[in-house]
Design a protein around this nucleic acid. Structure first.
Lengths: 186, 186
DNA sequence: CACCGGTTGTTCAAATTCGAAACGTACCGT
DNA sequence: ACGGTACGTTTCGAATTTGAACAACCGGTG
């Protein structure tokens, strides 16, 4: 038991910084989104993914994939969005149990209106505080960290690659788009 | 409105990486802590701070300071800890309105037992996945990010200083030897 | 065709979280 | 000492989140 490898000062600083940044940034972004567009961050993400999908619709499962939350939570979030008329549900034609979440016109408008403020918040909280080289390091390092903890399940032919190579997260692009406005946009 | 400065690919990757890493790491750590010691992360942090304070006691407000959560939540957390006998409340002798949270023997034992596993989890999820230089960059960069979003209030001679060097609170106390174990140690 | 293991999405109760309002002091200027 | 304001903590109600339990359903097997 005496063999525990504690953290040295550097590592400790990194962990603390990570914790504080995490907490503060997410709070900042979430708050901006809430009072500026009445959306929670997860809800915003849902809209973004839908907007970037063909036909503006996606199955719950696919939606859950990129969204870092549980299935039951997704049901809740979509329920909220539906209640506000930003999304509509439609049962999947090829699979009876499937449900498609469809972005409504109003949802698209809301997203369009919310995007600029959101990006600004992300910049103010994180991006514009970092030097270019820090941005690259963080993208690479944290990308690796996230990938490593990714559930074993799906092998998107890149999951494995990233796992091993872990070199450059290579935006891949292949994954449909993501060019959407997930804090960016066209 | 065309004036919005969207994020380029690098920045986008950094933001996404930050989001995913944030979500996955915190989930990983929290889960380990919960099923290994029955503590939530905030609760663990409370114990750590108390263990590192003279007499193993601290005022609620001081506790809340380093703990990235709201005051009402702190009340709840301490309440939970108290319910499990890891902490005890005592009214402050110098200020009647104040309340001191005191670490009990059992609390100290619980912390000692939980620390190794927690550190291991943090290492597995974050630290050991990073290169030494990445650790330094992250400590510096995220430290700056967190400090910048820190509420204006406090002027602990750190306002400006923290900008450059993330303070690593000294916490010798504890129990004679292996100092605090805020995921680190002496 | 009936059976089985694995999916899909929802529902439920319980735990957590937050913000605003409520309290009971403490400190300050007069 | 007196009134006003600021502080430290808790309480309250509402919103979120989660894990487990469900019910219906797919697909492939024998």
């Amino acid at each position: 038991m005496a063999g525990t490898r504690w953290l040295d000062e550097r590592q400790m600083a990194a962990w603390q910084g990570f914790l504080e940044a995490t907490s503060r940034v997410s709070r900042h972004v979430e708050q901006q989104l809430k009072e500026d567009a009445g959306l929670s961050h997860p809800q915003y993400e849902v809209l973004v993914r839908l907007a970037g999908a063909p036909g503006g619709e996606l199955r719950m499962t696919d939606l859950a994939e990129g969204l870092f939350t549980s299935k039951s939570n997704l049901t809740y979030q979509v329920g909220q969005l539906e209640k506000h008329g930003l999304v509509r549900r439609r049962s999947c034609p090829t699979d009876v149990r499937g449900v498609l979440a469809v972005l409504t016109e109003e949802g698209r408008d809301t997203l369009r209106a919310a995007a600029p403020g959101h990006v600004a918040a992300v910049r103010a909280a994180l991006i514009d505080v970092l030097e270019p080289d820090e941005i690259d390091t963080i993208a690479r390092a944290l990308g690796r960290v996230g990938a490593r903890l990714r559930p074993p399940g799906r092998d998107t032919e890149e999951t494995e690659a990233a796992e091993r190579a872990a070199e450059t997260e290579a935006q891949g692009a292949g994954s449909s788009d993501s060019g959407g406005m997930s804090t960016s946009s066209s």
